[in-house]
Design a protein around this nucleic acid. Structure first.
Lengths: 306, 306
DNA sequence: AAAATACGTTGCGTTTTATGCAACCTAATA
DNA sequence: TATTAGGTTGCATAAAACGCAACGTATTTT
């Protein structure tokens, strides 16, 4: 069945105003138009909707049924209008994004918390993935964007933002080296280390920096959990190497200290916000990516690229 | 907001079939039409509904919201279609009718019972009224039709059916006159009588018959309740005068007997099914009036008139 | 990197649909 | 019976939708 909106509106106004002519006045059309639209509605439904051959309008039961339908439709429409308003004003929406290995931690939770407080009607789905999967998800549009260290090279993926996030030596505030301005790679490698496993991008960059200095990293603990690594540092069992924001809370509480490492590979680490080429960011995506830029990476300069 | 059905359908099919061209095939229109209708929908909503600059169709959150609306609308539409089907097949509907004084009784209850069993989805409202009110209700369209003895004369009211319902002398089966073929008016007036009050049409016709024979009716009991009158007869306290169907149950049980009275005024009493001129009876009204004709007045011949 | 492919989009003439005007028909009323 | 207030219909006109064809662009293939 078709049930053109306009036709039903004509019927509704005719009923509401008692006559087709009155409805025509309200609708700013000729009475003949009202008559014909209602007649057509009757043809479409195959039933009389008004009692014909009568002075004023009276609906049949079928007519009343159609108006009931009209009213329920109007209710849905109002609901839709509210939703669209929320969506266009970036108050409502849904975001799917992928985030790289190294980001799980209090800083991310805080960022998401604050975002969800500011935008309570935007739903989120966060996928924690490795680099390979993140590429696929971005390309297949399974996520709107991804956040990771890896400067993924693919013709269809481009970086919308990048931020410098140097990897720091994270240690207990009471550690002998805690007051130092910076550490050499040699000094770092001499310490007891708690690092991420070798499949993680952060670890790969550390290994690379060590190799370039003719050194080897031999961690005493390996984990994919940032919480466990920072725990090791807090308990003075080991030093770890992470972006500062990963342990921002512990740094702020004065439990840990971050000391920079003299190695270009660890200084020029970039975090990228990656998305498929040509994807246009609607307002709510912009809202979240802005939030990530400002909260997750607050101490770094970020800039759009290409 | 307008939200033309057809436009949303185009969006829906484009989403469902993955591309505008595929949707165009399904809808048997040119792809350009699909593109333009969606574009117009976007103008009407003031938002992008699909992600433009892309090979296949992908909906924005707003687009999904619109489709949610579409789906809820489709659900309502299916419901409406069911309702219309019920209504056109006279399975569903509503009937308001008025019924005259003399009809309250088991016969009416049985008739309505059986009708409501046959048409469980038709709702009824029965108004028991006097003649004056029935006229007004019919003229003001407060009821679809009325059933009464009175041949109401009004240019706007006409009788759709009439049935002969002679008034009978109703008495106990053990009454001395119970075996008679018929009674004269004189014999009737000589009996102890329980009759309706003088404002009722049935009573007026009895009075008229008596007067024409130079007689007077002097009932020992008067009531507006048929139940009370028949009770009087069952308890042998009096004889009453009613249409046979008013006490059909008691007659069937062999508690009462109906004997005809030799008086043309009581023989040619008609029951009329009255409605406003020019009112067209939709199927469910026909259903009920047929039912009344066949169940309430089963022993009489009824015929459409004028 | 270039060509091929598969989309969406836009311009323009055509067809369908809705509208306006005027005359006409009908029910209700004076 | 005449009058009034509404619905309906014929015909010309305006608006909307459509089809065709050309074009632009994202993605895949070579």
């Amino acid at each position: 069945m078709h049930m053109h909106d306009r036709r039903i509106r004509f019927l509704y106004e005719a009923w509401r105003n008692g006559s087709m002519r009155a409805a025509a006045d309200v609708l700013n059309v000729a009475p003949s138009s009202v008559s014909r639209q209602i007649a057509q509605l009757e043809e479409e439904t195959g039933t009389d909707l008004i009692e014909h051959g009568r002075r004023e309008i009276r609906l049949t039961d079928a007519g009343h049924a159609v108006l009931d339908y009209y009213r329920s439709q109007q209710a849905s429409l109002e609901f839709l209008e509210g939703q669209l308003l929320d969506i266009t004003s970036a108050r409502a929406g849904h975001v799917e994004f992928a985030i790289g290995e190294g980001f799980l931690g209090q800083a991310l939770y805080d960022t998401l918390d604050s975002f969800m407080k500011d935008y309570p009607r935007i739903t989120l789905n966060v996928s924690v993935t490795d680099t390979t999967q993140m590429m696929r998800m971005i390309l297949d549009d399974e996520v709107h964007f991804g956040v990771g260290f890896h400067p993924i090279s693919h013709p269809q993926i481009l970086s919308r933002y990048r931020a410098t996030v140097p990897l720091m030596a994270i240690m207990h505030v009471g550690h002998p080296l805690a007051q130092r301005q910076s550490l050499s790679m040699a000094e770092l490698c001499a310490e007891a280390l708690a690092l991420m496993g070798p499949t993680f991008r952060i670890r790969q960059m550390i290994d690379e920096a060590a190799t370039n200095n003719g050194l080897m990293v031999a961690p005493i603990v390996t984990s994919n959990s940032i919480g466990l690594l920072s725990r090791m540092a807090i308990e003075r069992r080991a030093m770890t190497v992470l972006p500062a924001f990963s342990v921002a809370a512990e740094l702020a509480r004065g439990e840990l200290t971050a000391v920079s490492v003299d190695a270009p590979q660890l200084q020029s680490v970039y975090v990228h916000l990656l998305a498929r080429r040509n994807r246009r960011f609607p307002p709510h995506l912009d809202a979240l990516s802005d939030h990530i830029r400002k909260r997750l990476l607050p101490s770094t300069l970020s800039s759009p690229r290409e």
